[in-house]
Each structure stands twice: as structure tokens, then as C-alpha cells.
């Protein structure tokens, strides 16, 4: 299967934060949900993919091309939505379009107007008067009006109400129908991904934890509940992270079948949510840090 985005052994260090040996790929024709906590490195990774940052080492290729030689060609084919408004505030959407349109070879006015109508966006009002939802819709309109093959969204749903979020997800779902488009969607509101993501890429503390097909996550991972008497030094190793209370424990396993074999009927096994996976990965890490010290 063709990869649209490919990062290989990418390192990028800042003061107090680094991406370590990041190798991820995003498959053509699918929605990849990009998850991780605040400060996990999602935005940094997206900036690397957009060539807003350059890696200290490692290679990044988009559509099989690299930014050194084909920067403009790559960006022609990308549509982007950031979590904050990046448009000039003192002009109208119509003026903003006038500024952006000539940058793209494949700009489509009909498409633009279609989205403007659909989102009921005012063309003649200053962008600074737009609400957060409207700004996101304006961003999306611009991102979708030049037939981008790859759409990159950095936390587009943060700060939006459920109605607008749901609207956005519907639109993204419809966009995927022709199979030519690829979407990379970063978020920490993981429930957004239930509806549209085909793949999930999870990073934590600047490291790639996994990239999996969404349905496989439910097959492999599981939340296990049981009495604390079941836990000892060996059985604890079965879990990524454990949460203990007086009544028992709740833990995440990455190998549902093995856990079933070990514990049998003594535990309850449930489907995990993406949030569980994020949470218990962090917990497990804290535990490991403790046991090492």
C-alpha cells in the first residue's frame, strides 16, 4: 500500500523536549488519527510534515518527494487546518480568498463558494468577528478548495461544540468517498476518531508507540478488571498500566488473548477506548520509572 507521508528515524530536539527516532507512515486513501497527550509531540510532528520545522536528522518524504527539491510541488497538494486561526484578522474572507487563491494551481472557485454556502460563512465580514467555529470552518473551506490530496489537521476540533464537531466529521467522512484523499487528523478528543479513523498513530513523550488499524486495536488491546489478589510481580508484567483501588484493579493489556489464557474467568475483559490506551500508557510509564529508580 502506498504511503503518502513517510518519516524515517526523525530526531528533533528542543529545550526540554525531543522527538526520538520517530518513524511513522500515513497510508494513501485513509484517515489516520494522530493521538497523544498535550506535549507528546503531535504539533511538532505535524510541523515537521509541513516543513515548518526541519529535523535534526532523519528523512521526511511526502508523496514520495522530499522538501529540499520539491517544496512547492508538495505544498500544492496539501490542505491544512491548524488549531488556531492563522488568517489575517483585519480582512474579510473574500479578501483572504483573494490572497490565497493565486498560490494554488488547482484552486476551484465553485468549490469554495459551495463550502461558503454550506457553512453559511459571511464573505464581507472581518475575520476577527468570526466565532471559533466559524474560523475553523473558514480554514476548512480554504483547505478544501484546491483539490488537496492530503489534508493535515492539527487539533481542528479543540474548543468546538459537539454540533460543529459532528458537522466537521460528516464532511470529512464524505470527502473520503473517492479513495484518492488522505487525511491526517491530530486530536486529543479521541471520541472524534471513532467515526472516521481507519488508522491510529499514537505517540507519547516524543516516541512512536504504535500505528494500527483501528479495528485491530479492539482486537488486541483490552481493559481487564479484577481483584487485587490476582496481581503479583509476574502478572503485573502482563499489563501496560494498572490502576489499583481498594475494590480491585483496572488495567490495560496489549495482548487480549494471552491475558484471557492467564486469568481465565477470574477477570472481566472489556473493550478499551483510545482514551484508556493513552491514560494507561502514561500510568505504565510512571510505574516503570519508579521501578527503575
Amino acid at each position: 500500500m502506498e504511503n503518502v507521508i513517510e518519516l524515517q528515524h526523525v530526531y528533533k530536539a528542543f529545550k526540554g523536549f525531543e522527538l526520538k527516532d520517530l518513524s511513522i507512515s500515513v497510508k494513501k486513501g485513509f484517515v489516520t488519527g494522530f493521538i497523544g497527550g498535550n506535549g507528546a509531540g503531535k504539533s511538532t510532528t505535524i510541523k515537521l510534515i509541513m516543513n515548518l520545522l526541519k529535523p535534526d536528522s532523519g528523512t521526511i518524504s511526502i508523496f514520495g518527494m522530499d522538501y529540499k527539491k520539491n517544496e512547492k510541488e508538495i505544498k500544492q497538494r496539501i490542505g491544512f487546518v491548524f488549531d488556531s486561526n492563522i488568517f489575517y484578522e483585519n480582512i474579510t474572507l473574500a479578501e483572504m480568498k483573494k490572497i490565497i487563491k493565486p498560490a494554488y494551481r488547482k484552486w476551484d472557485d465553485t468549490l469554495f463558494n459551495q463550502y461558503v454556502d454550506m457553512f453559511e460563512l459571511p464573505l464581507k465580514k472581518n475575520l476577527k468577528t468570526f466565532s471559533k467555529g466559524m474560523k475553523m470552518k473558514a480554514s476548512l473551506t480554504i483547505a478544501l478548495s484546491h483539490h488537496a490530496e492530503l489534508i493535515i489537521m492539527d487539533e481542528p476540533t479543540s474548543g468546538l461544540d459537539p454540533i460543529i464537531r459532528s458537522e466537521l466529521l460528516n464532511i470529512l467522512h464524505n470527502l473520503m468517498q473517492n479513495g484518492e484523499r488522505t487525511i491526517l487528523f491530530s486530536t486529543h478528543i479521541t471520541t472524534d476518531l471513532d467515526r472516521i479513523a481507519d488508522y491510529i498513530t499514537f505517540i507519547h513523550n516524543g516516541q512512536h508507540i504504535f500505528t494500527k488499524e483501528y479495528y485491530k486495536i479492539e482486537e488486541e488491546f483490552a481493559i481487564v478488571k479484577g481483584g487485587t489478589n490476582l496481581l503479583d510481580r509476574d502478572t503485573e508484567q502482563e499489563f501496560i498500566g494498572i490502576h489499583k483501588t481498594n475494590h480491585g484493579f483496572r488495567a490495560l493489556t496489549a495482548n487480549k488473548q494471552r491475558t484471557k489464557n492467564i486469568f481465565g474467568d477470574t477477570v472481566i475483559i472489556e473493550k478499551p477506548t483510545l482514551e484508556d490506551i493513552m491514560l494507561y500508557t502514561k500510568k505504565g510509564e510512571e510505574r516503570d520509572a519508579k521501578s527503575y529508580s
Binding site: 515548518l52 510541488e73 505544498k75 492563522i86 488568517f87 498560490a103
Partner: peptide, 18 residues
């Protein structure tokens, strides 16, 4: 100055310009 804000830089560098 209008292009000095981080958002303007983000926008211009995300568009197909070097």
C-alpha cells in the same frame, strides 16, 4: 509587521511558497 506574527508565518510557510 503584518507578517511578523507567528500565525502569519504559519500561514505563509504552509502555502506553496519557499
Amino acid at each position: 509587521q503584518t507578517d511578523e506574527t507567528s500565525s502569519a508565518n504559519l500561514l505563509l510557510n504552509s502555502l506553496p511558497y519557499t
